[in-house]
Amino acid sequence: MQHTSHLLMIQPVHFSFNAETAVNNSFQNKSDQSNVQEKARQEFEQFISILRAHDIDVTVVEDTPDPHTPDSIFPNNWISFHEDGSICLYPMFATNRRLERKPSVLNSIQEKFLIVHTNDFTSNEKNELFLEGTGSMVLDREKKIAYACLSPRTNTQVFNEFCNTMQYKGVSFVAVDAAGAPIYHTNVMMCVADDYVVICLDSIKDSNEQQLVKQSIINSGKIIVEIDFNQMNHFAGNMLQVHNTRGEKFLVMSSQAFHALTPKQIETITAFNKIIHSDITTIETNGGGSARCMMAEIFLPLK
């Protein structure tokens, strides 16, 4: 199945601007707020409340103050969970983000879900080769296609290693922002749902690569909802499709992303599923990630 009703989210205790990740995340900007952690916590709690009000199951794990992990609110970069009972651990670009791989998170998951195997790609860190989970890759889980825009955080060799291990077909390309800089994570320019794909095709400058991606989407039986650079900059590519305990489907995004969409785009998306959005402006500004980055989908079997 492409989407799940089970999500892992990490409650922040020391959320802040991370200088280590800002070197190649153009979406990240240090705000002048003096209460960034307090505001981020409020936004997080409100987001959780909205998801749970729609009967979506959220496993919340509170981060620990030590070691200090300012980006722990984005767990999908270091771990992914799969239907066969396997988990994948990923090599991270920023050294302080590697500390997010805390036993307390896995212990909480194992209380509810069955983990039968671990695929550990983290040894690539010693060679400075990175693949930051479902930030670096956007997975078509039903069709077993992994899309990846290559960047300092998304290495071809590790991407191929993932695809070979998990038996995915890899579709890699180069995507840039409006200024021509590499886009740091695929999931800010692309979202794969069960019947459609939201994507900023303009960010793929090579015509052959753009056609490759378009054809892969069409061949997978999905329609394309195209967004522009301005919408991408407002996180309109950073979305995640989920369903609830009754099987109702939703596309989850930030309020900033929602307000960046045109009425026609909203009409197209809501023909397939409802939209859920929440204001997470502080998190987006300081962290350079949005709603999708905050949710790690859990496809593991329930105990």
Rank of each mutant, 00 (worst) to 15 (best):
I227K: 12
M232A: 03
V225Q: 05
A148Q: 12
I204D: 03
S207P: 03
L212N: 11
R153C: 14
T156R: 14
S207W: 06
V197M: 15
V192Q: 02
L240Y: 00
I183C: 08
A236K: 04
T186E: 05
L240P: 03
S136H: 14
N219E: 11
S172W: 09
D228C: 14
L139Y: 04
E132W: 01
A175G: 05
A179F: 12
S207G: 04
N238E: 05
A178G: 08
N160Q: 10
M239C: 10
C149P: 00
Q210C: 14
D202Q: 01
A146K: 02
S216K: 13
L212D: 01
Q231D: 08
L212Y: 05
M166H: 12
I224D: 06
S207K: 13
I218R: 12
Q210A: 09
G180M: 06
D194G: 10
Y196I: 13
S207L: 15
F159V: 10
Q157K: 12
M190C: 01
S172K: 12
T154F: 05
K169R: 14
T245Q: 14
D206K: 09
T154M: 06
V198R: 09
V225R: 08
D194E: 15
M232Y: 08
I217K: 06
Q241D: 06
A178S: 13
N187D: 08
L240S: 06
D195S: 13
A236G: 10
S207R: 14
G247N: 07
S203W: 01
L251Q: 05
N155S: 04
Q167P: 02
L251K: 10
N233S: 14
F162S: 00
F159I: 08
Y168P: 04
Q167C: 12
N155H: 01
T156V: 04
F173A: 13
V242I: 00
L251W: 06
T186G: 15
S207E: 10
A181F: 15
N208A: 14
Q211W: 04
D228G: 11
T134Y: 11
K249S: 11
M239S: 02
T156N: 06
R246V: 12
F235S: 05
I183T: 06
S172C: 13
K214E: 04
R246E: 15
E248S: 12
I199G: 07
G237W: 09
A146I: 01
E132N: 03
V176F: 04
V138C: 09
A181G: 10
F235W: 02
M137P: 05
A193P: 00
V242K: 03
R153Y: 13
